[in-house]
Amino acid sequence: MLDDIDRRLLRQYQHAPHLGPAELAERTGLTPATCARRLDRLRGNGIIRANRAVIDWRALGYEVEVSLRVSLDKTHPRAFDEFAAEARNVPEVIEIQTFLGRVDLRLSVIARDMAHYQQLYRSAILTLPHIADIEALMHVARIKSDDGLPL
């Protein structure tokens, strides 16, 4: 599926997606036209999914991050779908993950401070449908956060 040239291109691209094809081509030893064609193919095959801005939410005044482990009342056949649909509408929920096991979902929630988190928890989180149990884990430090892959 991927050859060594694709891997070399992806290694450079994932660390500097802002570079144009000419600069990326120079770093990978390709011609600009070949680089552009390969990038288009990687995008077309769904390997490169997006270019996006990563915004530091702490710089915008959000100081609190909480992981909420949620178990749902699975006696309702649409519990997952209905919960996820409602949780998506809470702007401070920045990530939703599903699991198999005792915990069904994990929500990452950000807040400006503890008072803001308490207000969010009471008015937006606890009102989500089909919650059977919820556990809050307060984030203290992020040791590693890296979207780069070992290519």
Rank of each mutant, 00 (worst) to 15 (best):
T34Q: 11
I48F: 12
R27I: 00
E82D: 14
A50T: 13
H76K: 08
E86T: 08
H15V: 05
H18T: 07
L19H: 14
Y62C: 06
Q14V: 03
I48R: 05
S145Q: 15
P77L: 09
K144F: 01
A59Y: 11
R43W: 03
P77G: 01
V90C: 05
R102Y: 01
I96D: 02
Y117V: 05
M1A: 04
T98Y: 07
F99W: 02
R7N: 08
L128H: 14
A111K: 02
F83V: 06
D81A: 13
R8F: 01
T34F: 01
S123K: 12
G20C: 05
V109I: 14
S71W: 12
H18Q: 15
V140N: 03
N89R: 15
Q97S: 11
P32W: 06
L72V: 13
S145T: 10
Q119G: 02
L72D: 07
L149E: 13
V109E: 03
R78D: 14
F83P: 00
Q14D: 08
I96C: 00
P91V: 07
M114R: 06
F99V: 12
P17T: 04
L137G: 10
G44E: 14
R112I: 10
F80C: 02
T34C: 00
L126G: 09
P91E: 13
A16K: 11
T75H: 06
A22T: 15
K144C: 01
G46F: 06
Q118F: 02
R106Y: 00
I55F: 09
S145L: 09
P32F: 03
L19G: 03
V64E: 06
S108C: 05
L149Y: 07
G44V: 06
S145A: 12
E23T: 06
G148H: 14
R49T: 15
H15M: 02
I110K: 04
E95P: 00
